[in-house]
Design a protein around this nucleic acid. Sequence first.
DNA 1: AGCAATAGTGTAAGAAATACACCTTATATT
DNA 2: AATATAAGGTGTATTTCTTACACTATTGCT
Lengths: 231, 231
Amino acid sequence: MQSNLPHLQSIFTADCVIFGFNEGELKVLLIERNEYPFKDWWGLPGFFVEHNETIDDAVKRILLEHTGLKGIYMEQLYTFGDLKRHPQGRIITVAYYAMLRLEAVNLNLKPSTNYVRKAQWHPLNNLPELAFDHRNIIEKSIEKIRRKVSHSPIAFELLPEKFTLTQLQQLYEAIWDKKLDKRNFRKKMLKYNVLKELDEKQKGVSYRAAKLYKFDKRKYNKIFKNELNFS
Amino acid sequence: MQSNLPHLQSIFTADCVIFGFNEGELKVLLIERNEYPFKDWWGLPGFFVEHNETIDDAVKRILLEHTGLKGIYMEQLYTFGDLKRHPQGRIITVAYYAMLRLEAVNLNLKPSTNYVRKAQWHPLNNLPELAFDHRNIIEKSIEKIRRKVSHSPIAFELLPEKFTLTQLQQLYEAIWDKKLDKRNFRKKMLKYNVLKELDEKQKGVSYRAAKLYKFDKRKYNKIFKNELNFS
DNA sequence: AGCAATAGTGTAAGAAATACACCTTATATT
DNA sequence: AATATAAGGTGTATTTCTTACACTATTGCT
């Protein structure tokens, strides 16, 4: 095989939009930048992708370096390539998103790179001004999870392993920014048959404790193969 | 603002997956390559994005140069970045897709670049061997339109402006690779209230001529604002 | 006139979605 | 011990949607 093209290398970045949920609010994980451009600004965890790693690998590495989070499964969202999005030339960025149980993880957010000063959760409806086009990227991500959550039960990823039906409902209400009917919500959720009722109850609450449930991944995989409901 | 990063430029490509529909079959538009790598192979229209154009603009330009098609609205599908996908280094590609009325357009497929020998429609279920990871890209695109078509009526983009309900049904059957019930299909489609019945009938057929319909974009925009059907 | 080929239509049964209100239980307070 | 509080938990009737299913109508062709 012949070639008259030079050997080329891509230069581009990958950004992470990590959603969490607690206290009835959706949060997003931001980092405080310690490096130009946008030094001292808040932004998404994100950096250049190396030449010898896949984009999927790169976002994992970057998330780890920027926040200390490990083993998070992220999905690709969209690639942003506006001419002015990066002050140092037209750098495109491939954005990924993930939804996360926020409880235990909360404590050890420890960046391991000097580019980042710290990582912190911010409520989605009260974000600081953000570097680059990161606000736009976050907005696109929310639209995505809204769509996604309505035909696949990824919402469970945002809850603790054991959760109450009320917690689950609050999560959907936060995502859709909309109140839902308690009885209908429960009927529907239980009908999907992907929840496993546990013998445990909530603890430490000053009112009647609710039953705890688990997401049953095995049942889910059986059921949600064909998600289409057209006909 | 200070910076210790060099001025950088992205090097990457954009590829187009253009779907068409006629004779009851889904087709995809391929080009025969006249340049290395993969000279003489079939592949997707696709090329390097310039430094001063957005990715959205680039795919339009590339599609025009490679096929002669103009004014096609494409949506971004996914960004592919496997280490081995391009023989000249790790070049990522941002793939876009579009669905197209195939009738009139069919005649004037004229590449205007030497990189491409010709452009031609190929039935989806009988594709030649393809350059790069283009087969994979096409497969991802089909999955995408299957999902998309089940909650938004983009299928109309594949039909002539005036079409019969049978043509519409055949299109859905082709996309889903599945027979549908005629009466139920019509009931459902008409209930959505996005079809405009015309006073015209099909011509040139040797059997009872069917009524022609148009897609009513104004009605559509009113109705399909909130596409979620969860609750 | 009759054939071939597709257009076009309705109904009944079952499933899912929605709207809606009260009793139960655990804890904290007096 | 009694009471208040705060959320947990449950059922039914109505309407809407989905599905399964088969025959008559129209047109062109011979």
